[in-house]
């Protein structure tokens, strides 16, 4: 899929949100869209997904089946999780039995089994976001567009996102992910588009040799053993520091009245 000289503004006399955007994503590729809040990441993703039409320029070779996970799933709808997903599967063109199978699969995989008959407005933000993820995956997408997919998800589901991305990529699909929380490390090998004031810069892919920092808390009494095990595993220990949070909270001089 290619974005050819795409410009976009929301109103005729409004400011340009995207300018001179030239970008390309090939089948089997993952691209992470980076940029500060308000830079135009969501707009770019919506243009790619086919939600927004460019004011100028065009988008070519968009795959026929697109899955879009919006930043906030619209939970204010009078359906249960199962009924909603089932209807979306059918609307996506799946045969009713195939739609039901896909719904069962994703409900189970995303840990929604206990919420199957819960109405959407009663879901927490994170659970509603899982429904948003499921609806985009019922029909295997040729392009999966994820707008801040880690936002509001629990740790287990956050870990599932890279696996889902890998599956779409392995099936020949493309994946476009926006990220402003630095979760890009979860997608090694992804190319990067950086959005700055409406312009998009196509960056180099992160390589398999890219390093990330993982902070691990261990009981003080077992720190020597933990460090030794990590070193034995080939990991590089940058530093060992005391856990500052409980100390700060326990310090009466830190937050007390002066």
């Amino acid at each position: 899929m290619r974005l050819e000289n795409v410009w976009l503004r929301y109103h005729r006399r409004g400011p340009w949100v995207l300018r001179e955007t030239q970008a390309r994503i090939d089948p089997g590729e993952v691209v992470v869209v980076l940029g500060r809040n308000g830079a135009g990441k969501s707009t770019l993703l919506q243009v790619a997904a086919g939600v927004l039409r460019p004011s100028r320029g065009r988008v070519t070779d968009r795959p026929r089946h697109v899955g879009w996970v919006p930043e906030r799933f619209p939970a204010d709808q009078p359906f249960t999780v199962e009924r909603y997903l089932s209807a979306i599967g059918r609307a996506a063109g799946l045969h009713p039995e195939a739609a039901d199978r896909a719904v069962d699969h994703w409900i189970s995989r995303l840990g929604l089994t206990g919420f199957r008959r819960v109405r959407l407005p009663e879901l927490s933000k994170g659970t509603a976001q899982k429904v948003g993820l499921a609806q985009a995956l019922l029909r295997p997408p040729g392009l999966l567009v994820l707008d801040e997919p880690w936002e509001g998800l629990d740790a287990a589901t956050r870990d599932l996102v890279p696996a889902v991305v890998d599956e779409v990529r392995a099936a020949g699909g493309s994946v476009l992910v926006s990220d402003h929380r630095g979760e890009v490390a979860r997608l090694p090998g992804a190319r990067r588009w950086t959005v700055t004031d409406g312009t998009v810069t196509d960056g180099a892919p992160s390589t398999d040799t890219a390093m990330v920092v993982v902070e691990v808390a261990v009981p003080a009494a077992r720190v020597a053993g933990a460090v030794a095990r990590l070193r034995a595993g080939g990991h590089h220990i940058l530093r060992v520091r005391p856990d500052a949070t409980p100390a700060a909270e326990a310090d009466p001089a830190a937050g007390g009245p002066g």
Partner: peptide, 16 residues
Amino acid sequence: VEPDVQRRLAQVLVGV
């Protein structure tokens, strides 16, 4: 009654 984002999801799903 259909939320704006759901209408956009429908557009992605079935086309404009």
